[in-house]
Lab assay of single mutants.
Amino acid sequence: SKGEELFTGVVPILVELDGDVNGHKFSVSGEGEGDATYGKLTLKFICTTGKLPVPWPTLVTTLSYGVQCFSRYPDHMKQHDFFKSAMPEGYVQERTIFFKDDGNYKTRAEVKFEGDTLVNRIELKGIDFKEDGNILGHKLEYNYNSHNVYIMADKQKNGIKVNFKIRHNIEDGSVQLADHYQQNTPIGDGPVLLPDNHYLSTQSALSKDPNEKRDHMVLLEFVTAAGITHGMDELYK
């Protein structure tokens, strides 16, 4: 796709999030870079409003799984890469995230190029959380598991539907599940690639910047598309 050509090198990323969870309002600002050749993201996020009212790991899918245009699609799968094909005009990404036995996040993001920078601007609203639950009670460990993110075409809306389940580790050794339902639709009216069913395999590492006084998260992530085999004719070339 034409959009794919915008991702040949390292691309700067800007992320802006405004959130409200159970009436606790907050903002997060992030910057870093993405390299789609390797499916690599390096980002640093800062809570610009003081202390973040929710655990950082609960925002990873909104912040970095928010820029799935940096996923590495192998050559034989490039015609299934909706995310890059929607660029530079970008796409709207909407999600509902259900935390098992707790509340939910609803998010709406616009992901697009502004100049040479890929920008992810998000509004997040969280409701029905227990004040002493795993999320508002800050009981999650500061780490992140690997996940597969399942993608299918949504021809009606000229976009994709995505769903997956995140496993958050809790300090007591148990797990907090979070079910994600995602819809992506193009902002522009140019042609986009509608994929066959496949998935993104994601690995994320969270860390801290020892010199950063503000509440923050440093993230390194690798994302690769998989799940579609080479056609038989490919094998015999």
Rank of each mutant, 00 (worst) to 15 (best):
N143I: 09
P186T: 13
H138Y: 04
K125R: 10
K100M: 08
F45V: 07
G3D: 06
A36D: 03
L206P: 03
K139M: 10
H138R: 09
T48I: 04
D18H: 15
D154V: 05
D20G: 01
D154G: 08
G66D: 00
D179A: 06
G188C: 15
K139E: 06
E33A: 11
P195S: 04
D101Y: 05
L6V: 06
K51G: 03
A205T: 15
N163I: 08
P186H: 04
K130E: 06
D102N: 02
H216L: 00
N148S: 05
R121H: 05
T48S: 06
T42S: 15
G133S: 11
E94V: 05
Q93P: 01
E5V: 12
A225V: 04
Y181N: 07
G39D: 00
E31G: 08
K157V: 15
K165M: 15
N184Y: 01
I151V: 11
V10K: 04
Y199D: 01
V15I: 13
I135N: 03
V223L: 15
Y181H: 12
Q203H: 15
T58A: 05
A226T: 13
F222Y: 13
D132H: 07
V11A: 02
E123V: 13
N148T: 10
G126D: 00
L63M: 09
V54E: 01
Q68R: 01
F164S: 03
T42N: 09
L52P: 02
L17Q: 00
E212D: 05
N120H: 02
R108H: 05
M217I: 04
D101N: 07
E4D: 09
K130T: 07
Y73C: 01
H198L: 02
S207C: 11
Y236N: 15
G34D: 00
T37S: 12
I170L: 14
D35H: 12
T202P: 02
K25Q: 13
E131V: 11
Y181C: 11
N169I: 12
M152K: 08
K2Q: 14
F70C: 06
T185A: 11
T224A: 11
P12H: 02
D154A: 13
P57A: 08
Y144C: 11
H80L: 14
N104Y: 15
D75A: 08
V175L: 09
I127V: 13
H198R: 01
R95P: 00
D75N: 09
L177F: 14
F98C: 13
